[in-house]
């Protein structure tokens, strides 16, 4: 098991380097190349001389490979993600400021999703083609089809203006604990995010269980005299967990970047908005830093999913892992 994880970590690191190389290279394709941010940082009417000075200050005239090497050195040796071009903050400062806010939003909706979608999917599969199944399927399709921003706006319309008067916006404030000053404000964004992911995950759970229910070993379990509850939970659920574990693993990076639309609808400044703003204002160090974080989470999510899969399914357990 240890060598397996080690091998996977080395592989992940290589993937990470490739991702960094790509994101590092992309700014070269801007109209003014890597000097483009100067016009945004200093203003669009600055003299070519000022641009040149900015370029020298930021080491833009070194050869491409030297710049990449320096960036790697800065990140991996000095654990320094650089300083934002736009904000008077280090990139690490921006991340540590907004990550807790985003995680709070995304994690609470993820937990709600898992708690609701998995039992719902199992129930739908066990009562296939019943009224409940049809209603849940229809609702899921509608929610799945609605763009996130539209659902957010509808939620605001109904729950904040028409029917009830829930706060339309979570409390904003730079301090991480500011978000706890008015928990009611989180109901709408969390609900929107949760509804969207339930629509998605419950469909997966339903089809995963349905696929398992027709397997021969389920028939064997019935022939043994297992009750339908035992058949469903012992034999179907455990086997259906595989695909769900993978999906949840892939969902992990989405915790940080995926809530962008919801964040902007509910005017909640989290990491997603920071990434989008940084990208549109050519704040390259911030984009690189957040991308790096999301990549690490993606790779970790995959690794975790694979390890979990081995726990759920003994056939996938790696050699040398013991029993």
């Amino acid at each position: 098991m240890f060598t397996y994880v080690l091998r996977r970590l080395v592989q992940s690191f290589i993937v990470l380097l490739i991702v960094m190389l790509i994101t590092f290279t992309l700014p070269y394709f801007e109209p003014n190349g890597i000097l483009a941010p100067a016009y945004i940082v200093l203003g669009s009417h600055i003299s070519p001389h000022a641009v040149h000075v900015w370029g020298v200050q930021n080491g833009m005239f070194h050869p491409y490979y030297v710049r990449f090497w320096n960036y790697l050195d800065q990140v991996f040796i000095h654990f320094n993600l650089g300083v934002s071009y736009k904000q008077n903050l280090s990139v690490w400062g921006i991340i540590s400021l907004y990550v807790p806010r985003t995680i709070w939003l995304a994690l609470s909706s993820l937990i709600l999703t898992v708690v609701i979608a998995i039992p719902l999917g199992i129930y739908q599969a066990s009562r296939r083609n019943s009224v409940v199944d049809y209603v849940a399927t229809g609702t899921a399709f509608i929610l799945y089809g609605i763009p996130a921003f539209l659902l957010g706006i509808l939620m605001l319309q109904f729950f904040s203006f028409s029917w009830t008067h829930l706060p339309a916006q979570p409390p904003d404030g730079v301090a991480p604990w500011a978000m706890f000053t008015n928990p009611l404000g989180f109901i709408l964004p969390v609900m929107t995010l949760t509804l969207l992911s339930i629509a998605f995950l419950s469909r997966f759970m339903r089809s995963a269980v349905l696929e398992v229910l027709v397997q021969d070993y389920v028939r064997t379990a019935k022939a043994k005299g297992c009750s339908s509850r035992q058949v469903l939970f012992r034999h179907s659920f455990r086997n259906a967990l595989g695909p769900i574990v993978i999906i949840l693993g892939l969902y992990l990076p989405g915790l940080l970047g995926g809530a962008v639309v919801i964040e902007s609808v509910f005017n909640y400044s989290g990491l997603g908005i920071q990434l989008v703003t940084a990208a549109t204002s050519l704040d390259v160090p911030t984009v690189l830093g957040i991308t790096l974080l999301v990549s690490i989470l993606t790779l970790l999510g995959n690794l975790l999913a694979d390890i979990m899969l081995g726990i759920v399914n003994p056939r996938i357990r790696v050699e040398g892992s013991g029993r």
Binding site: D216, Y217, R219, T220, A223, N239, N313, P314, R315
Partner: peptide, 12 residues
């Protein structure tokens, strides 16, 4: 049952 390869639950 006919097919012993599929009639046992793989995860137990």
């Amino acid at each position: 049952f006919q097919d012993p390869l599929t009639s046992l639950n793989p995860v137990y």
